[in-house]
Amino acid sequence: MEKLELTPPPAILFALEPLRAMADYVASLAPASQPLPQGDGHPVIVFPGLGVSGYATEGLRERLKELNYEVHDWEQGVNQWPDTEFDGFLDLLSEQLKRIHSQNGRPISLIGWSLGGVYARELAKTHPKLVRQAITLATPFADQPNSTHAGWLFTLLNGGVSPMDEALLRRLSIDPAVPCTSVYSPSDGVVGWAGCVGTESEYHRNIEVDNVSHWGMLHNPEVLRVVARLLAEHRRGTFRTLLDTCVTKLL
Rank of each mutant, 00 (worst) to 15 (best):
E2H: 07
E2G: 01
L4S: 05
L4F: 09
E5K: 13
T7Q: 08
T7P: 00
I12G: 01
L13W: 11
L13I: 02
F14Y: 12
L16E: 13
E17W: 07
P18L: 01
L19W: 14
A32E: 14
Q34F: 01
P35K: 01
Q38H: 10
D40C: 07
G41C: 07
H42Y: 04
V46C: 08
F47S: 09
F47K: 11
F47Y: 15
G49N: 09
L50W: 15
S53K: 05
G54H: 03
L60S: 08
L60A: 13
E62Q: 13
R63Q: 14
L64D: 05
K65F: 01
E66H: 09
L67F: 05
N68G: 06
N68H: 15
Y69K: 02
E70H: 07
D73R: 03
D73P: 00
N79A: 15
Q80V: 08
Q80E: 09
W81Q: 08
T84W: 00
D87W: 04
D87P: 00
F89G: 00
D91L: 05
D91M: 04
S94P: 01
L97K: 01
L97S: 02
H101Y: 14
S102Q: 15
Q103S: 09
Q103E: 14
R106S: 12
I108S: 03
S109T: 14
S109R: 03
L110S: 07
W113E: 09
S114C: 08
G117V: 09
Y119H: 10
A120P: 06
A124T: 05
T126N: 03
T126L: 11
P128G: 04
K129W: 00
V131I: 08
R132I: 03
T136G: 09
T136C: 12
P140I: 04
A142P: 00
P145S: 13
N146E: 14
S147I: 06
H149F: 09
A150N: 11
A150V: 12
W152H: 06
L153T: 03
G160P: 07
M164P: 08
R170N: 14
R170Q: 15
R171D: 10
L172K: 12
D175S: 14
V178K: 06
T181S: 15
V183Y: 05
Y184I: 06
S185Q: 02
S185H: 03
P186I: 05
S187R: 11
S187N: 09
D188K: 10
D188F: 08
G189K: 10
V191K: 10
W193Q: 05
C196Y: 02
V197K: 04
V197M: 03
G198A: 08
S201K: 07
E202P: 00
H204E: 04
E208S: 07
S213Y: 02
H214L: 04
W215P: 00
M217P: 04
M217I: 03
H219Y: 15
H219D: 11
H219T: 07
P221N: 04
L224I: 04
L224E: 09
R225T: 04
R229A: 10
L231D: 07
A232G: 14
A232V: 06
E233I: 10
E233S: 10
H234C: 03
R236V: 15
G237M: 11
T241N: 12
L242H: 10
L243P: 00
L243E: 12
L243K: 02
L243H: 13
C246Y: 04
V247I: 15
V247Y: 07
L250W: 06
